[in-house]
């Protein structure tokens, strides 16, 4: 246990240092541009799994949180020229609030109904933003990046680094939850809410907590996207593809371990980036659909689940 912890923190530090070095050593912008998207999906998938994996509440509203992150940034930037970090912090706060509301929804609905409600929530929020002229309405809004601050050489590099920090933050939180009593409580309520409640687990409080943490992280992950694209419009910011991609990544990686969503996000994210560049974004969505169906049917526990099964088999073989 202890040694694991040391490995984890050293790994996280090495990851951040490597990212920082990259921003210094690589001059071409493209790797950052592509890598940013993958980092963003890692945050989304890890954050999604806190609720979807541990607690078993399948949230199809990732795009609602992501989009609100984008528009929180847009709004603050337009109204006050707020710096990036303020945009992200505010987005996290907005996401936490939305998560709180979502958590209360779990009081009234479970299973499929919860999932359908999250889709509904997404469209309602998207439509409201579409009708909000100040942030550009349906046509969208152009944003001019401010000059980049030291020590970064370019804005994209800075966004890349910031998103990497969010990755570390999300993973630290998710890992903490998995290994603590919170994770055990969420797992219990996923298996059986009534039995959990009767074993002393404060199910509502834990669900709300998971929703708040998950929501805050997803919203924060969306905030830098405004400056990344220098443009925002409701139909892309709230695109259902974010919800389904995130879900697919978590399922492909497997939600039984905090590393699952990371693996899934890297795999599917990279594939999607390659496909979008080399063929077209349509084929990209096709692959997303096929992968989702394949994994849900053939490997419901994801890659992590497959790995565990292989390991268990081998262990049995040895005995």
């Amino acid at each position: 246990m202890k040694r694991n912890g040391v490995f984890f923190w050293v790994g996280a530090a090495v990851f951040l240092i490597a990212i920082a070095l990259m921003t210094k050593l690589i001059t071409n912008e493209y790797p950052f541009f592509a890598g940013y998207v993958i980092l963003q999906f890692i945050v989304l998938a890890v954050a999604w799994s806190i609720l979807g994996g541990h607690a078993g509440y399948v949230n199809f509203g990732t795009s609602a949180f992501f989009g609100m992150g984008v528009y929180t940034a847009v709004f603050l930037f337009k109204v006050a020229g707020a710096p990036l970090l303020v945009q992200i912090a505010a987005a996290a706060a907005v996401g936490a609030l939305m998560g709180f509301a979502l958590g209360l929804l779990t009081l009234r609905m479970q299973g499929i109904f919860f999932s359908i409600a999250t889709i509904a929530l997404t469209i309602v929020i998207e439509t409201s933003i579409t009708n909000w002229r100040y942030v550009g309405g349906a046509a969208g809004i152009q944003l001019q990046r401010p000059p980049v601050t030291w020590p970064f050489s370019g804005y994209v590099q800075m966004l890349f680094f910031v998103q990497a920090v969010l990755v570390v933050l999300a993973v630290v939180v998710s890992r903490y939850i998995q290994n603590s009593w919170i994770g055990r409580g969420l797992q219990a309520l996923r298996d059986d809410e009534l039995a959990a409640e009767c074993t002393g687990v404060p199910t509502l409080r834990l669900k709300v907590l998971a929703c708040v943490v998950s929501g805050a992280l997803m919203c924060a992950a969306g905030a830098p996207a405004a400056m990344y694209l220098q443009y925002a419009d409701p139909s892309s910011a709230f695109n259902l593809n974010y919800s389904v991609s995130t879900l697919a990544m978590s399922l492909i990686g497997g939600t039984a371990h905090w590393a699952g969503p990371i693996v899934g996000a890297i795999l599917l994210g990279t594939t999607q980036q390659l496909l979008t560049v080399t063929i077209s974004s349509e084929v990209n969505v096709l692959v997303l659909g096929v992968m989702l169906v394949l994994f849900v049917v053939a490997a419901p526990e994801g890659l992590i689940g497959l790995l565990r099964r292989v390991r268990d088999k081998r262990r049995e073989g040895k005995q």
């Binding site: 409580g185 298996d191 009534l194 074993t199 687990v201």
Partner: peptide
């Protein structure tokens, strides 16, 4: 419970740990 409601994804001792952690 009349129909047993174990925490299915856990081992037997983990089922008890939920109680010890929370109750």
């Amino acid at each position: 419970f009349q129909i047993p409601r174990p925490f299915r994804s856990m081992t037997v001792v983990e089922n008890l740990m939920v109680a010890l952690d929370f109750a």
